[in-house]
Design a protein around this nucleic acid. Structure first.
Lengths: 175, 175, 175, 175
DNA sequence: CATGAATGAGTGTTCATTCAT
DNA sequence: TATGAATGAACACTCATTCAT
């Protein structure tokens, strides 16, 4: 059912993203949909959570004994892979999330992910500037912005994209 | 009428962005709205055009006798100012544009803007890499991503933001 | 449109009382219905108001220079006529009103009507008991109860019913 | 299960009165509910029957050797007690009964109850008028109307209410 | 017998668009 | 040209009922 929702969102965009369409695509009745989710918002939230969890898990799994530069690269690699996996979905979920009331679980997951970013940016071999406020936000924004645009252009070559993002972030940090 | 649409979008978001609300806010009847615009999509497109034109004009006005680095900084400055002027509007228009079928005028304006970017990146004192494909797109994406995120965080200090964006773009270009 | 709602309520009961049915019966689209009423509750409230207003006007028009007994009889006559006019509608509105949140206009109208009852019961030639609390409520309840039951039995002879109600109320008051 | 239905009806009104809610409250599955009752209507009917049976039994138990006036008072006392026991339930069942198709068992029970009324009203020390048609219906309506209104006002003092109802009925009968 | 997931017709409501005035 | 009442497809959601396990 979540996968059906994801598919609809990717294929038809926000306009086609209706509970009836989701149910039909999932091959269940609209009534069943509402037995698993209390409402449309819950479906979207679950979808967001699912996508965010993949990234969080990838990122948390990065070997913390590695140097900061190496970890940063791996982090970017994970973020790129995550966004490139389903670029349209990632973008639309991002958009729709803004309409939803804040959700505890989503917020927690976002905080956990940001935490990993912050730890990496505070590593020993990182410049002092990297620990400043807003830096984490900037780095995330750079990654998101570049990968999003690449996704919209239809880029699929993750390796090349990762290299460019690494260059941008490294440059920003003064590495 | 366009300003009414902009206001509604900023104040009520995509959910409140209805033709009736726009007409009421503009102080005209819904019938009149449809005499000036063939449909809701046309209103949004006109709004997008209006906002893009401001940026294009600012950018086109940059003194082309200046060095590439200086022009790049001015360009970023203009982009930041443009996005920070009405951050919510800029973001929502961006989102809603994706729903609309491609539009000739919008595309032309985007191409014109990108053209200026490209010329600056191809300036004599710029590294060779800057002329490669993707680079223009990447730079635009970095700027958009960072400024968007800043707008969402509620940042209003354009000067500090410009500096950070310049740093990111310069780093990315290897300046 | 109100008349359509009334008709549906009378013919199909609360079960058939849907906005779509009302619109269809009224010969307008569902959209038009919602241009005149903000919601289903508003339709029901307007209907209640309409019915209550008839009774209030009848009752307020009773010549206040008459003796208490005479006025009481006229009041009962008016109440009977009102309830017998559309007995099913009166009853169902009564039921549905209980589901609705309290409404200022309805409450005011009810208070105005009760006020007239109270004034008549406090007339000079009325027994002292008539002025006691709960008496107004009891009298209204007797009238409503008897007339409602008569309506459900299909009685249409107002004159005979009025006599019996007068007898009950007079007996209750000790006249 | 019936008690669960009664509880839901009292606590949540007709809006909350759903088969799922009843089953949950009763601690059984919705499937089991449908093994004991063929449908929602049957549950409501059974509930009506249960409540009516209590009154019928009370009334049938009245000593038939007593005088008519005394028996009438006892009957009213029983009716008041019955309605005041669970005033909200009594009222809502009354309302919901109107939606249901007529039921043999309910009708029989109602007839039995009315029969007792009629016998009392035909007692030797009762006025001739009491035996007329409509009188039984009127008396029942007076009692129901007054007690219902009292229940809605939140009255709980049965004794005072019984006295007032007796006064109304006696007055009506010309006692 | 008991279960509860599945069903889908039906509900109240919104909103982009049209067109007679 | 301006108006705004009218339209109706579409939406999110509910709930009485069924039936495979």
């Amino acid at each position: 059912m979540l996968e059906a929702a994801a598919h609809i969102l990717e294929r038809d965009g926000l306009d086609g993203y209706s509970t009836n369409a989701i149910a039909e695509r999932a091959g269940v009745s609209i009534g069943s949909l509402y037995q698993y989710f209390p409402g449309k918002a819950a479906i979207t939230r679950a979808l967001i959570l699912r996508e965010m969890t993949v990234l969080r898990d990838d990122i948390v799994g990065i070997d913390s004994t590695l140097g900061g530069k190496e970890r940063l690269e791996r982090l970017i690699s994970a973020a790129v892979a995550n966004q490139l996996r389903r670029p349209v979905l990632a973008r639309l979920l991002d958009v729709d999330e803004a309409r939803l009331p804040p959700d505890e679980n989503v917020d927690r997951l976002a905080a956990e992910t940001a935490q990993v970013f912050q730890e990496i940016l505070a590593a020993a071999d990182m410049p002092d500037t990297a620990a400043k406020p807003y830096v984490t936000g900037d780095v995330i924004a750079i990654i998101r912005g570049m990968v999003d645009a690449a996704g919209r252009r239809g880029e699929t070559n993750a390796q090349g994209l990762v290299e460019r993002v690494v260059r941008a972030v490294s440059g920003y940090l003064g590495l």
